[in-house]
Write a protein that binds this DNA or RNA. Structure first.
Length: 446
DNA sequence: TGAAATGTTGGGGCG
DNA sequence: ACGCCCCAACATTTC
């Protein structure tokens, strides 16, 4: 006969999602502090993986990061149990164990994640398990920064004002309460002790080929942050942090970087506010994921031309600023933000192609892809979003080049054949395309 | 975080 | 000295 489990023979699960670090991790902190025998879990979510092409740099990054997390936990005498499948199936099995008393994780605000977590919560309710979720991915989430009447902001500037005001409401010797790091290390003793280690699914077993794309570092120099406002608009200059992918997967802490930003550069901090802004827009207006934020902009008669679409994707439009950007994206999984605006304006306005096509292409290629920010950016460019560029604001790809890459360093870096007869003629005329765009939007909006 | 078109001003050449 | 034109530079309006 089996020995009865002692009364306190209980355990808690901690579920890693987009918070792939052991330090300064909100939900992990509370799991360790409030409960004991905390077993860490990661799931390679087949619902997501099955939609991706067979080589994806982010899958490779995820696999490497999860392997490293597992090693760190083993080093601490514990383990990370890694699954590959559908979260609901996996949790159905794990939570039926009567020793489980809690499931802890950090909140994810994207529509798919919201729905997934709602179902997981139902499962927890069924087994009377506490489903405890925490804010970790942003500084201020959903309902924390709202207008005085409680409604969400839809314009950035007043949102930012309120965001900054809230930051200073609770300060301790100059440091905002909201930037404080969770001292997870103090409670590592509560991690479950593991005798027999679980195995790690191989990269291959996930159904993907390894990608060779290089991942930017998790660190950024003080100099880059301090000079961010002066240098961020020049794509040939190393003036941006490239931390996007690490914010996305939580391989760095947003609080840590916000602290540095507050000290070193207001413009850099502003970019973190944009991130919170778009996160709460997507949460409160989930329709933006598929439709225009402003209803008036629905149904613009988009063109579609296979040849033009291919040339845009491959960086062969004949407009150097557009082409350099697209080639940078295709080769590195990154594109400088100034150039993102130029290529997005070009696709939606010069080419009059549906912004959703551009959004999907960026989603496939960008290492730092984040649904809320990417969607916000594309709706901004097409004119349909919150606080958007008015429809008549059309970037001139040539003057953008003279303004922001006067020496053509960025252009030449990505277009080696620039200046030779190998480089194509412009595939459309700027003036004509501009006028066509104005006429189309004007007709639709009136 | 736009660009082009249109309007205004003032200096200088010139008869 | 004066009127006229041209045009650069800047300001304002428009899309």
């Amino acid at each position: 006969m089996l020995a009865a489990c002692p009364k306190d023979c209980t355990m808690t699960y901690f579920w890693f999602r987009r918070d792939l670090r052991l330090h300064d991790n909100a939900a992990l902190y509370y799991a360790l502090k409030n409960t004991k025998d905390v077993q860490c879990v990661f799931i390679f979510d087949q619902n997501i993986l099955e939609k991706l092409p067979s080589t994806d740099a982010r899958v490779t990054f995820l696999h490497d990061t999860v392997s490293s997390l597992k090693d760190q936990l083993i080093e601490l005498g514990s383990d990370l149990v890694v699954y590959h499948g559908r979260p609901l199936d996996i949790w159905s099995k794990l939570l039926s164990n009567k020793d489980v008393v809690g499931l802890y994780c950090n909140r994810d605000y994207e529509p798919y994640a919201q729905q997934r977590d709602e179902e997981v919560k139902k499962l927890c309710d069924k087994y009377q398990i506490d489903f405890c979720t925490y804010k970790d991915h942003v500084i201020f989430e959903k309902d924390e920064v709202t207008k005085d009447d409680g409604l969400p902001y839809t314009v950035f500037t007043p949102y930012k004002r309120k965001w900054l005001a809230k930051l200073t409401q609770r300060e301790d010797s100059g440091l905002s309460y909201y930037f404080k790091a969770y001292p997870n290390e103090k409670y590592f003793g509560q991690l479950s002790k593991v005798k027999k280690l679980s195995s790690m699914p191989s990269h291959e077993s996930l159904g993907f080929d390894r990608s060779e794309i290089e991942i930017p570092s998790t660190t950024v120099t003080q100099k880059v942050i301090r000079e961010y406002d002066k240098k961020r608009n020049f794509p040939a200059v190393n003036g941006t942090s490239k931390l996007g992918i690490h914010f996305r997967f939580g391989t760095i802490s947003i609080r840590d970087k916000a602290r540095k930003a507050q000290k070193l550069n207001d413009t850099f901090l502003s970019e973190l506010v944009w991130r919170d802004f778009y996160s709460q827009i997507l949460y409160h207006f989930p329709h933006v994921a598929n439709k225009e934020f402003r209803a008036k902009y629905e149904g613009i008669p988009w063109r579609f031309d296979e040849e033009e679409w291919t040339r845009w994707k491959e960086g062969r439009t004949g407009y150097p600023m557009v082409d350099a950007g697209m080639r940078e994206l295709n080769n590195t999984g990154y594109m400088h933000n100034r150039v993102r605006m130029v290529v997005a304006s070009f696709l939606t306005k010069h080419m009059l192609h549906d912004w959703r096509l551009g959004e999907a292409y960026f989603a496939e290629k960008l290492l730092d892809f984040d649904l809320a920010s990417n969607n916000g950016g594309w709706q901004w460019a097409s004119g349909s979003g919150t606080d958007a560029a008015p429809y008549f604001r059309i970037f001139n790809p040539t003057s953008q080049m003279t303004k922001f890459d006067p020496q053509k360093e960025y252009i030449k870096k990505w277009i080696p054949e620039f200046g030779t007869d190998q480089y194509p003629e412009p595939m459309l005329d700027h003036k004509e395309a501009r006028e066509r765009c104005l006429a189309t939007y004007k007709m639709h909006l009136n």
